[in-house]
Design a protein around this nucleic acid. Structure first.
Lengths: 215, 215, 215, 215
DNA sequence: GATGAATGAGGGTTCATTCAT
DNA sequence: TATGAATGAACCCTCATTCAT
């Protein structure tokens, strides 16, 4: 499956590839990984294609065989890495367990599948650079956020009905996600001044949210 | 009273100035305002000094009479606009009122003095560019965040002692501030897809946090 | 005697001035002195009018009341300082003394009236920057060099006739002046590596030139 | 054999190069030649990289593939062109011939290998800009001048011992070189007013210096 | 006259992108 | 495909000169 024009995302995990296709997909991934490193460290504007190439161990021109331009590289990076998370969260919604258990799973999901992976950096990039990439913001909203929030709403509504969660949460699922955002941002900027125990933060948050209330 | 070296912030609100000094301070403010507009819209790297000048209605070279370089302009912009907030929050801490009242004041403070002002944009800028301006991040942490969090901790500890707040909050004041961060980020990226009623969000958050708990 | 247009050289030593005129002439001299310092240290292109002003202790704009522009300042500086030397050399020519005595006077003239004065710097400037100021080079050739060389030729012809000097010197008075040029250039560039005893150099030179020859 | 960092001089005359390397070396030389033209005509500060590029027939950015910056280009130009001369002069010293012959060779060496080549311009540049490039002046003194003077001293001491030269010359080799300096400076400034027969000048100079003396 | 804030053309340098090999 | 030399538009900053005070 040759890539005639280097534009749309390429699933690097497609099965049954020719050796050629596998090599191509691998290269692509190497470039994306290098791009993530550089974009994360420098931001979009300050990242030089030269540096991405160097980090990927290839020539500068080669990047342009895989991605149309710098912007395209950036956008595909975000797309490629963010889509998969949604499934896990929707799975959470479908599990029928008490809030106490769910809550724990949420923490694990966030910490293990996002915060301690490169996804954390991708999310930070998205949040911070998104403004200048409206298409990207839209994609992110449509394909990621709105689906995550829909799942959360379903889950929280059910919990509220059972008296396991305050009703306000179903209206503002952002409140559930807020500390995750804090963690992501904090880790980029302030960790060196004051490290943040993210798992404890998340736990504390969920405990407060889902504590049993009087009346 | 000439400004010998265009480096340190100039109090633009000093009283009893000579006409010359007033004009100078005004110019400075005009430039800062223009810079905020441009930096907010384009980010640091993508902003052109030319555009800042044009927006300020002055010649490009003039900026350099007031700020050493682009970076300096950027950093002073952040400093100038963020420092004043701290006082308001510390004032909150010193007011001895029940949590219900305090909670309302917090919402008002955030919405009226931050979210609906240019400060919202400055905070977003800070988050966006902080990584590449470690000095700035440090300044922000030291002069703003840590002081705000200290005030919050004091306030929340007192409240916890009175049973008006969960103890976890005093440990993680970030949890109190988290929806503010959400609001700032959301307003830049997703408002056009799904507007967010920030005041309602904040209120809901504080209600959940400070709801009376059973045992 | 007000200076209506700041163009032509102003004799700062004119007599019987009004106080106003004196002040004007003084200012002019201060500027010229400052200009000499800066041009000598940085060269024409790298010297900033700002620095000249600062060194002169006046405002930048003031320079333009006395000199049309930077180039004009430079050229008048050279003109003002070089013209006076010619007279001394022509006086040498008219003195009827044996070569041994003349030779000593030449050394003194060069060392005392040129090399150890600011004129050394002016000459260096002239030689080095002259290429880009053809008018100036012409002036210097016409008003200074050609007259000095004419005087030297006369003097050397007479000496040759008396057998006190080699005939070649009258043809190439440059040979007589050459070590002066060396001294001027050396003092700007290499003195810190290897100081040059200029008086000894000049003496040695003249001794070699005017040594008694065998047949 | 890629040029990893465009900093140190590249021997453009190395043999047995790959075609790529040859092309690279050629380009480098083309740029240096263009730079020499421009720097000679305008001086360092007034020369625009644009013009160097245009004269070299390449794009402006290309220069920066071969030289770190304008200053580096300038300095390497000087270094590249002046270093080779030293050898020739040291060779003179080692030739054991009578002063009359040596004297003629000196004239030829200066006229043919310096004065009528681009080196004349490089020396003029060195003199002109040396003050603002102390490193360059030091290099020139250490690598060129001091070695030339050492060779001259050896040669002149030997000649003096044989009675073929005045002893003063060994002490001040500058006296031997002085007319060379005159020629270089004169050719830039005054040739159009009064052409100078440089070969004749040099010959006359050496004749005077090495004439047989009485006593 | 004197000031120095303001101007804006000019130039060094960077870097995304292209293209000959 | 892969390379990396080459391109040239873009942008920050400087500084000679002007002009309102």
């Amino acid at each position: 499956m040759p890539r005639p024009k280097p534009t749309q995302p390429a699933a690097s995990q497609s099965k049954a590839q020719t050796p050629r296709a596998r090599r191509t997909a691998e290269r692509r991934d190497v470039i994306l990984a290098a791009a993530l490193d550089e974009f994360s460290a420098q931001g979009f504007a300050a990242t030089r294609m030269d540096d991405v190439a160097k980090r990927a161990g290839i020539a500068k021109g080669t990047i342009y065989l895989y991605f149309r331009d710098k912007e395209s590289l950036f956008q595909e990076l975000i797309r490629t890495m963010l889509t998969p998370v949604v499934g896990s969260i929707e799975a959470l919604r479908d599990a029928d367990v008490p809030m106490a258990v769910l809550s724990e799973r949420m923490v694990d999901l966030f910490v293990d599948e996002i915060f301690s992976t490169r996804r954390r950096d991708v999310i930070r990039l998205m949040l911070l650079e998104g403004r200048r990439f409206p298409k990207l913001a839209e994609f992110y909203y449509r394909e990621v956020l709105s689906r995550i929030f829909a799942a959360m709403r379903a889950l929280l509504t059910r919990a509220a009905d059972r008296g396991e969660a305050p009703a306000a949460l179903a209206k503002f699922p952002q409140l559930l996600a807020a500390p995750g955002l804090v963690a992501v941002v904090w880790s980029g900027l302030f960790d060196r001044f004051e490290p943040l125990d993210v798992r404890a933060l998340m736990k504390a948050h969920l405990e407060v949210l889902f504590a049993r209330r009087s009346a």
